[in-house]
Structure formats: structure tokens, C-alpha cells
Design a binder for these strands. Structure first.
Length: 402
DNA sequence: AGTCCACAGGAAGGGCAGGCGA
DNA sequence: TCGCCTGCCCTTCCTGTGGACT
């Protein structure tokens, strides 16, 4: 048999008519002209922020809603419009967007301030300066710019959970020391109870306005997907039922439009690779694929010790139906470490790592009491067992375990 | 009602790497 | 080179906890 060369493959690929007309319409970076079912939220946010165009500091705003409900899209859309107008009319306005979930970028007080100071051209090292000094740098740069700044802190709950709420208090207090500028904060959070956990002094200095985004229902999701599908795919390249199925899947997951769009994109890519039109079967395959991609991505980013702990958990659970407990996982982990010459952490630290694996969804760990036999975590796998076994094999190879 | 177990999880601090200015 | 600052990972020490057992 003559082997097909990569050259032939690419030739064929270029000749073939693609399912996609504009695949970008199904990506996160795509910015639609209008945002369906979010008129109220757009108007409310625009009303709150509008004073900035007259150089009056607007109220701080908190935006709540489940993932994929259009929060970030709406905020970016409103601020784009404001920036267009401010450029046209020479209004001194600047918006800065920071995602507090981005590790090593904006996930600590120091890093956020350093990023902000850099936005104004100040050269701040990634570590080394006292936080106070970075505050001073940012203050003076901001004041010198004589601009009104709207600071968007996306996933603000992640920041506060990690670093406490002091940073929010300090950011709101900056205004007191500014002569020529001011700063307003737009906080975006997936956690609707986020503000309840803030200290009263922070709450009073921060939360002046709130906008709440409710989840999309299946009908709304379908219409959103319909619009994107028309932009993304060529005519007759997909089955009408595909969009409905993607919408239904996403509606089950608290109306997450982001997930629905990703599902449609992956289903399209799978169909394209199979040289077929996009039908319902590819949506099922895409759902499985997305699930696996998420898990693999999480595992790839785990530290060595977290991988060791996860491997120990899979090893214990793979051959039984009953859950595991912290103590036995620690024992198994210790043996694994000593067998492989790896430094063993304390049980205290292991407990934290189990908590982290739980919050990542890799395992389900519930605290239970076994009465006289103590209090512990009851641990089950958060992923499919067969898939966990495959992961355990790949971890074994990755870590070169004996 | 008191005891006991097997942890959970908070607080404090050590050690390290990376960066700065003197 | 040294002292000082940061973030990060980790340990040690400690108190708290829920329910079975006595």
C-alpha cells in the first residue's frame, strides 16, 4: 500500500469544501454586534457608568451571574462603546480589564497593582518591591494621567478568597489621595453570595450598585446558538437538530452559553474531520471530548505532589465500590513516595491537596463523622472510573513511577 | 453525660527563589 | 555582596468537631 504523504493530505484538505464559513464566530474572542436577551443588563450598566463620560466618578458596580451568562461580554461591550465615544469627544477615560483567575498575572494584591501601574507605563518588577511602593507608583501614575479609570476585576471572588478583601478596601480608598483622577471598580463574580462574605467596612465602601445576570433557558440558548451557527457554518452543512441538542446540553448546566458554543464548535470540528455533515451524533462525541479535555487540562497543571496524591486515590478506588478516607490515602501516598524516592508531605498538607482536588472536581470529598472512629473525609472519584484508570496509567508514565 | 477517635482546618512561621537598591 | 521585600510551598502546633461508644 502506498502511504499518503502529508503533502497530499494538505492538498486534499485545501480542495475540500469546509463546513465552516467563519469558525471564529464560535470562539471566546468573538464579539457579537448585539447581545441577545441582555438588553436590560446592558442598559442598566450603561446608566450606572454613564457619568464617567462627564468626568464624574460613577458608582462601583458588582455583577453577579453563573458562568456563561454573558457578564464579561456585556461589560466589555458597554466599555467598548464608552471608549469609542470618549475617543471621539476627547474625554479622559480609560478602562482596564483584569481577570483575577489568571495565575501569575492578577491573582495577588501585588500582581494586580503591578499590572495597573504597568498600564500607565510604569516598569514594575514581578517581585521585589514593597506593596506600599507599588501602590504609590500606581497612585502617582494615575494622578499624572488625569484620567477617570474604570477597573474591571473579573472573577473577583477568586481574588478575595485567595488574598482577603483588604485589596478591595485599599483600591476604593485610593480615590481619597487622588487630586486629578479617580477610579471606579466593576467587580464580576460567579458567586452570588460573594458580597455577604466581605467585611462590613469593605462592603460599605464598595458595593454601591448591583447587576444580576440570570441564566439563559434552553429556548434563549437555542436562539443564541442559531445566530452563531449561521455566522459560523456554510449553508446545508449542519442539521437543525444539532443546535437544539447543544442548547439542551448547556441548559442542563445552568444555562451556560459559553459551554453551548464550545460544544457546537467541537462538534463541527469532529464532523469536519470525518468528512460528514454535522449531525446530532457529533454533539454526543463533542460532549465526551470536552469533558476529557477539561480533565486532562487540569491534570497537566497539577504539581508533582498533587499528581502523587491523585494517583494514590485512583489506586485505592479503582478496584472497589466503597469510598476512601484521608488516613488510608495518606498511608498509600507515603508508600508510593518512599518507593519512588520522592519527598513525602505531612498529613496536614495532604489534607489541603485533597481539598484542592475536590474543588477542581477531580474527586468528591465530603467530611463525615464515623463516630467513635473519628471525623474524616469520605472520598470518591469525580470522574468516570474507566477514564480514571487511563489517567492513572498516563500519570504512572509521566512520573516514571515504580 | 462524658470520653474518645481521626481527622479538619486556622495560625504562625520557616525556607526558598527572584528581584531591587545601596 | 548584602539586606530587604515579595510569593509560594510547606511544617508545626493547636483547637474544634460529630457521633459511636462507655
Amino acid at each position: 500500500m502506498i502511504q499518503k504523504s502529508a503533502f497530499d493530505f494538505f492538498e486534499e484538505y485545501l480542495e475540500k469544501k469546509s463546513l465552516f464559513k467563519n469558525a471564529d464566530a464560535l470562539t471566546l474572542k468573538f464579539n457579537p454586534e448585539s447581545i441577545s436577551y441582555r438588553d436590560q443588563e446592558v442598559n442598566l450598566l450603561a446608566q450606572i457608568l454613564a457619568p464617567a463620560l462627564k468626568n464624574i466618578k460613577p458608582s462601583n458596580v458588582f455583577i453577579y451571574g453563573k458562568p456563561g451568562t454573558g457578564k464579561t461580554l456585556v461589560v466589555k461591550n458597554v466599555l467598548n462603546s464608552m471608549e469609542q465615544i470618549s475617543t471621539q469627544r476627547n474625554i479622559q477615560l480609560k478602562s482596564i480589564y483584569l481577570n483575577c483567575k489568571l495565575q501569575n498575572v492578577a491573582d495577588t494584591e501585588y500582581r494586580i497593582l503591578a499590572q495597573l501601574a504597568r498600564e500607565f507605563g510604569r516598569d514594575i518588577p514581578s517581585t521585589g518591591l514593597p506593596t506600599n511602593e507599588v501602590y504609590n507608583e500606581f497612585n502617582s501614575a494615575l494622578d499624572a494621567s488625569a484620567k477617570l479609570v474604570i477597573l474591571i476585576l473579573d472573577e473577583i471572588d477568586v481574588l478575595v478568597n485567595k488574598c482577603g478583601d483588604n485589596i478591595l478596601y485599599n483600591l476604593t480608598r485610593i480615590n481619597e489621595s487622588l487630586k486629578n483622577s479617580s477610579i471606579a471598580i466593576v467587580g464580576i463574580s460567579n458567586d452570588i453570595n460573594f458580597k455577604n462574605n466581605l467585611e462590613p467596612r469593605v462592603k460599605s465602601s464598595l458595593g454601591e450598585e448591583e447587576v444580576i445576570f440570570s441564566p439563559y433557558d434552553a429556548v434563549q440558548l437555542k436562539e443564541i446558538l442559531d445566530q452563531r451557527a449561521i455566522l459560523a457554518f456554510n449553508e446545508n452543512s449542519y442539521d437543525e437538530l444539532v443546535v437544539a441538542k447543544c442548547a439542551a446540553y448547556a441548559a442542563q448546566q445552568h444555562g451556560d452559553a459559553r459551554r453551548a458554543i464550545a460544544l457546537l464548535r467541537v462538534a463541527g470540528e469532529l464532523a469536519e474531520r470525518s468528512n460528514k455533515t454535522l449531525t446530532e451524533e457529533f454533539v454526543d462525541l463533542a460532549e465526551k471530548q470536552l469533558e476529557k479535555d477539561t480533565v486532562m487540562e487540569v491534570i497537566k497543571n497539577l504539581t508533582l505532589q498533587s499528581k502523587m496524591v491523585f494517583y494514590s486515590i485512583i489506586s485505592i478506588l479503582k478496584n472497589r465500590v466503597t469510598p476512601a478516607f484521608t488516613g488510608e490515602i495518606f498511608e498509600s501516598y507515603k508508600k508510593l513516595c518512599s518507593k519512588n524516592g520522592i519527598d513525602c508531605l505531612t498529613q496536614r498538607r495532604l489534607s489541603d491537596l485533597i481539598g484542592e482536588l475536590d474543588s477542581l472536581g477531580m474527586i468528591n470529598a465530603d467530611i463525615i463523622s464515623k463516630g467513635r472512629y473519628g471525623r474524616t473525609r469520605e472520598i470518591n472519584l469525580g470522574i468516570d472510573k474507566d477514564y480514571a484508570n487511563k489517567i492513572s496509567i498516563s500519570l504512572c508514565e509521566d512520573l516514571d513511577l515504580k
